[in-house]
Design a binder for these strands. Structure first.
Lengths: 295, 295
DNA sequence: TAGCAACTATGAAAACTATTCATTGGTTGT
DNA sequence: ACAACCAATGAATAGTTTTCATAGTTGCTA
């Protein structure tokens, strides 16, 4: 029967290259590891590695186990952590995943009252996912996913929590600042700043420029929202951001929001949660607060 | 440190309701379980349950652990199974998930040469998923998902492997049998058989009837493809199925395929795999065979 | 309300398992 | 050929889990 220790040993061997080194890092002797795996190999009847010279080579079965170890160990380790949290009187932690760059400020406004209301619950926000936010939700890396692109998948439920309009931000000195709306063609002469994600995930391309077969004079990538706004204020280019965000900065920076197309670009923020388990009380509470959010 | 045994105990307690019963089912004494959890509780500083009368009630923390146990234990149990398989000289098992009812016959045609070519690899097909095929892929319940509805998600890659046309099947005695094509309106007088899944997942509704604002005289659900064909042959109603499937039965049953609309209803079968790990050799091989499949 | 059945908790002893110690034998590099 | 590594192994030891025996609680019922 495979136990947690077996997986740990395998992981260490893989990382450190030798039984002896792995043993040291686990505060055990080389002998202990050797015995422990000999036993596992006898029980299962499978060789997990073989010696090649003074090196250890994992067999096919060993590689399989290693792969699973790397996947499962972090999940087991989390169990310990969470129990410790419970011990400290913390009710748990709300792990939020963000797939929506400018939503960060919106999130802050929701998190603030949440923290006040739920003293025992910590909030953690992850913005980078190796395999995407959806995978993170499925794998219990996060509990809530904030995204503008919901997907209908069994096991995950998305609910809209906030409507807003995506607008073009330009410097007050920019020629476009006098317009009330802007056409796709008008952007052909502008430098466009966006977050560094795939074009397909950027509304300005997917729902505005590409349908009209247009493109900006130049497309530059900026990660930080504040920097983007500074660049726009200096009239180095234009960007697309939520209207409420532009409004927040309008007093402190010489920028102006211009509607994209005649009808504007309406957007929604969605929250996604797993539906295969009863959501905890504080997740429901977060939902309520998110729905109440206003700008 | 939480070990596998703790999760097992928790799961049994939840299922059987008492320590004593759980102990019996695990071939241990009640005392053992009591000690074992007392230790865990002392180490973590968290109470996992409390006695209420002669019953055991899980605390918040206990419920959390139980939930994780139900999720993680099956994955651990699989590790043992797979090692045993390796011992028997089997290279592993290809676990295929199907989200495409009529594709079963197509799958058989691919599996046949696969089994011949890969003697050591077993094939297992799952057709029911509690939380959907996508979740099953993420959770390593299956290795390949066969579906007509691919979704663009990081961590999963879908590739089209087979094109076909979805057609209406009618009895040769049915009035529609003389037509070469059929309009949505024409179905208003027919009983329609489909698989028992949500309407949104049935192309005949999503891409044919609903856009034309039509509906069949009656909608009846049948699970088994063969039964469906028998019912159609007896002119109890009509159904939509892949053309290649209808062709296979055309000689043995009095049925006829009729094109849906002027252009027909083109469909594709996609295979989805996880991209966060190197696919094993036999998964790649299965892909190749799937691409070669012809009817 | 006394008695009984069903259950859990606990300390001490027993059984079992994991770990170490001490040693061997193999490989690599100088 | 020797030193430096490294893994495997048997026997001894340390450590942990499990049992046994027993006490204590609850809920039912006669």
């Amino acid at each position: 029967m495979i136990e947690r220790i077996h997986l740990k040993i395998l992981r260490e061997i893989d990382q450190l290259g030798s039984l002896t080194a792995a043993a040291k890092s686990l505060h055990l002797t080389q002998s202990a590891l050797s015995h422990s795996f000999k036993k596992l190999e006898n029980q299962s009847g499978t060789q997990l590695w073989h010696k090649k010279g003074r090196q250890i080579h994992l067999t096919q079965a060993g590689k399989f186990l290693l792969n699973e170890a790397n996947r499962l160990l972090p999940q087991m380790e989390r169990l310990d952590e969470v129990l410790l949290q419970y011990a400290k009187g913390e009710r748990g932690a709300l792990r939020i995943g963000m797939e929506c760059h400018p939503c960060y400020r919106w999130l802050l406004k929701v998190v603030e009252p949440f923290l006040a209301e739920w003293e025992g619950v910590d909030v953690d926000v992850k913005q980078k996912f190796q395999f995407g936010g959806m995978a993170a939700l499925f794998n219990h890396e996060i509990d809530i996913l904030v995204t503008p692109d919901p997907l209908e998948i069994k096991g995950i439920k998305f609910s809209p929590v906030f409507d807003y309009e995506q607008v073009l931000v330009v410097a007050t000195t920019n020629a476009l600042a006098t317009h009330t709306t802007v056409s796709p063609e008008a952007l052909s002469n502008e430098v466009l700043f966006t977050y560094p994600v795939e074009k397909e995930r950027l509304d300005i391309f997917k729902n505005f420029l590409i349908p009209a077969n247009c493109q900006p004079k130049k497309h530059k990538l900026i990660e930080a929202t504040e920097m983007m706004l500074q660049m726009v204020a200096a009239d180095r280019g234009v960007a697309t951001l939520p209207l409420w965000l532009v409004n927040e900065y309008q007093d402190s920076l010489p920028i102006k929001a211009v509607r994209l197309g005649d009808k504007g670009l309406p957007k929604k923020i969605y929250l996604g949660i797993r539906t295969n388990e009863e959501p905890t009380e504080y997740i429901r509470a977060f939902f309520k607060l998110a729905l109440k959010s206003k700008f």
